[in-house]
């Protein structure tokens, strides 16, 4: 007797929720096409000048800085994540729970607190000159490592049961098993972990805010700084560009690593 009516009502509600979710992003994107330096919506006139400005030196520099930072973060997170995930997944050893808690800790602690802790610590031990790129790299690896460790650990856990013993019975030494069986099978997980770390680093605000310095600021901090001076369609264009980069990355590689698993992972700090 309730029939399909509740379902139709639900569909309507869901449509409204999508509107709420995607509306602001669509509005931001369209505002960037305004003729004048104003935030009219719907846009008045049509111009690509703000998009051009988004790739001007003022924005290109932090964009490239962010890309470099995120790429290095991803590489280091994978390099450190593989042995950690291996130790967690394949061995029992005294102190394992502690090491695991420390590794995953940055997921639980607010990133902002990790940021001020690093700021204070580096200053107190006289490494204040590291502020900027090096401190950012250290901080980003700390906060991105849990993502890559978790992703790699999941791919190790999901490995079909007996393939490693099978390889061993066929005459493969432990090293050969690692090289020909374990690592190739873990590769999608490692790639997913790297994409994850990249996206997380590229999007970070809460940590970067405290340890960036003029000239060595990631894009997010640059946008935040610019907001204090007011609004321009340029900023809308820059925002959209910065949003498209992680999206493109996942669209490119998501197929290999399973976009679903990928997104399910993202439940840490915002």
């Amino acid at each position: 007797m309730t029939g399909r009516l509740p379902w139709s009502a639900l569909k309507l509600a869901v449509a409204c929720i999508y509107l709420f979710m995607l509306g602001p992003i669509v509005i931001t994107a369209s505002v960037a096409f305004n003729q004048d330096n104003r935030s009219y919506f719907p846009p008045r006139g049509f111009s690509l000048q703000w998009w051009e400005a988004a790739f001007g030196p003022q924005w290109l520099q932090p964009l490239l800085f962010s890309l470099e930072l995120a790429t290095l973060t991803a590489l280091i997170s994978a390099a450190a994540g593989v042995p950690l995930a291996f130790a967690f997944q394949r061995y029992r050893f005294p102190g394992k729970a502690l090491v695991r808690a420390i590794t995953l800790g940055p997921l639980i602690l607010p990133t902002l607190v990790t940021g001020i802790a690093l700021l204070q610590f580096l200053s107190l031990i006289g490494l204040g000159r590291w502020m900027g790129f090096w401190a950012l790299l250290i901080g980003h690896v700390v906060i991105c490592l849990p993502f890559s460790v978790r992703t790699i650990a999941i791919s190790l856990a999901a490995m079909p049961g007996n393939v490693e013993p099978a390889a061993s019975s066929l005459g493969a030494t432990p090293f050969a098993v690692l090289r020909h069986v374990t690592l190739p099978l873990a590769a999608p997980g490692v790639l997913a972990g790297m994409i994850f770390a990249f996206v997380h680093s590229f999007d970070d605000v809460n940590l970067s805010l405290f340890i960036a310095r003029p000239g060595e600021r990631p894009l997010t901090v640059a946008i935040l700084g610019f907001l204090e001076f007011g609004f321009a369609p340029t900023l809308a264009a820059v925002s959209i560009v910065s949003m498209l980069i992680p999206l493109a990355l996942v669209a490119l590689f998501g197929r290999f690593v399973g976009i679903g698993d990928f997104l399910y992972q993202e439940t840490g700090n915002g």
Binding site: G23, P24, S39, F41, F231, A236, S239, L247
Partner: peptide, 30 residues
């Protein structure tokens, strides 16, 4: 994918849209 994809964008970008909508000369007031 559409409902989860916003996670891939920085929270700045996602919040920024609301600034565009809500500010004094923003989309809503216009």
């Amino acid at each position: 994918a559409l409902s989860l994809a916003p996670l891939l964008a920085s929270v700045i970008v996602r919040t920024y849209g609301w600034w565009v909508v809500l500010n004094r000369e923003g989309a809503l007031n216009v």
